[in-house]
Amino acid sequence: MTVRDIFPNAAARAQLAASGLADFAALWSLDTDWHEAPNERRGGWSGVSRHVLADGTAIFLKRQENHLCRTWRHPLRGIPTFYREYLNIRRLQEHAIGAVEALYYGDRLAAGKWRAILVTRALDDSISLDEWDAAADRGDPSQRRSLIRAVALACARLHHHRLQHSCLYGKHLFVRRSPAAGPDYQEADVRFIDLEKLRLGLSRERVGAHDLDQLMRHTQVWSDDDRACFLLAYRQQRAALKG
C-alpha cells in the first residue's frame, strides 16, 4: 500500500483534528452530500463535497478513485490528478501567487486502486470573475477598472514564472467580494482555482499567449475598454517583472 499524508502546516492538521478529520479514513468515509456530481472517466471517478468543520470553517473535500494523469516521471502508471493539483497549489504559494489554501492531501494504492483526497479551505470571501461580471451593476466604473488591473497583474505574475494555467476561464479566477484594503482591488485580491492542468511551459510568451487567448474568448461581457485596460496592465507588469 502506498501512503501519502500531507498537511502543509501544524495549524491545518489541528483544525481538521478538532473535527475528527485528520486522517485519510475519516475523510474518505465522511457522509456528506456532493457539491458537484462525481465525474466518471476511464474506469475511475472524482467528486467534490462541501463540509463545515466544528469551528464553522467551510472546506471542500475532493475525493477520487482511479482518476489519474500521466507525467514525465510517471508516464505509464500516472499519478492522482489531485496530487498534481496539490503540488501546483504549493507551487503558486511559493511564488506569492494567489491560490486556494490546501489543508490536506492524502492517497492510498491498494488492490490496484488509487484513492486520493484533497481538502481546501472554501473561498467564501470571494466569487468567480464570471459571477462578478454577471452582477447587475457590474460595479463602480473605477472599481471595475481596478479589478481588471488586479486580474491582469496576477496573470502576468503567473506567466512570469512560465506557469500556464491551461484552463483560464472566468470561473477559475476568484476575486474578493469587496477589496481587502481600500476602495480598489489589488493583485492580492485575486486567486486561481482548479489547478489540475497547470504546467510549466517552455517560454513566458507561449504560456501567456495560450492563457490570454482562453481568457479573452471567455470574458464575452468585457467591453473593448475593459480588454484594453487588462492588456495595458498585463504588459506593464510583465515589463516590470523582467526588470
Rank of each mutant, 00 (worst) to 15 (best):
M1S: 12
M1V: 03
D5I: 08
A10K: 15
A11C: 06
Q15L: 09
Q15H: 10
A17V: 03
A18I: 01
G20Y: 04
L21G: 13
A22M: 03
D23V: 05
F24D: 14
F24C: 10
A25E: 14
A26R: 14
W28G: 00
W28H: 07
S29M: 02
S29Y: 01
S29K: 11
D31I: 00
D31P: 07
T32F: 00
D33T: 05
D33Y: 00
H35F: 04
N39V: 05
R41W: 02
V52C: 11
L53Y: 06
D55H: 09
G56Y: 04
I59S: 00
I59P: 00
F60I: 04
L68A: 13
C69Y: 02
T71R: 15
R73L: 02
R73T: 01
R73I: 00
H74T: 10
H74W: 08
P75C: 05
R77V: 06
G78S: 07
G78P: 12
F82Q: 15
F82T: 14
Y83V: 04
Y83N: 12
R84Y: 03
R84I: 07
E85K: 12
L87C: 06
N88K: 06
R90E: 09
R90W: 00
R91M: 06
H95R: 15
A96E: 10
I97Y: 04
A99F: 02
A99S: 15
A99C: 09
E101R: 15
Y104W: 07
Y105Q: 14
G106S: 10
A111T: 07
A111R: 15
G112Y: 05
R115T: 08
I117V: 12
V119R: 00
T120N: 09
T120P: 11
A122C: 09
A122V: 04
D124I: 02
I127G: 07
S128L: 05
L129D: 12
D130C: 05
D130V: 02
W132G: 03
A136D: 08
R138W: 02
G139S: 04
G139C: 04
D140G: 07
S142M: 05
S142Q: 12
Q143I: 04
Q143R: 15
S146D: 11
I148E: 13
V151T: 04
A156T: 05
A156W: 02
R157S: 10
R157P: 07
H159Y: 03
H160F: 06
H161I: 08
Q164V: 01
H165W: 01
H165Y: 02
C167P: 08
C167Q: 13
K171V: 05
K171N: 12
L173A: 03
V175M: 03
R177P: 08
P179R: 07
A180P: 12
G182F: 10
G182Q: 15
P183W: 01
D184P: 06
Q186W: 00
D189G: 13
F192W: 07
D194Q: 09
L195H: 12
L198N: 08
R199V: 10
L200M: 03
L200F: 01
L200T: 06
G201S: 14
S203T: 14
S203A: 06
S203H: 03
R204Y: 01
V207R: 15
G208D: 05
H210T: 05
D213A: 11
R217W: 01
T219N: 13
D224F: 01
D224H: 11
D225N: 11
F230C: 13
L231H: 08
L232Q: 13
L232T: 12
A233I: 02
R235Y: 03
R235K: 11
L241N: 11
G243M: 04
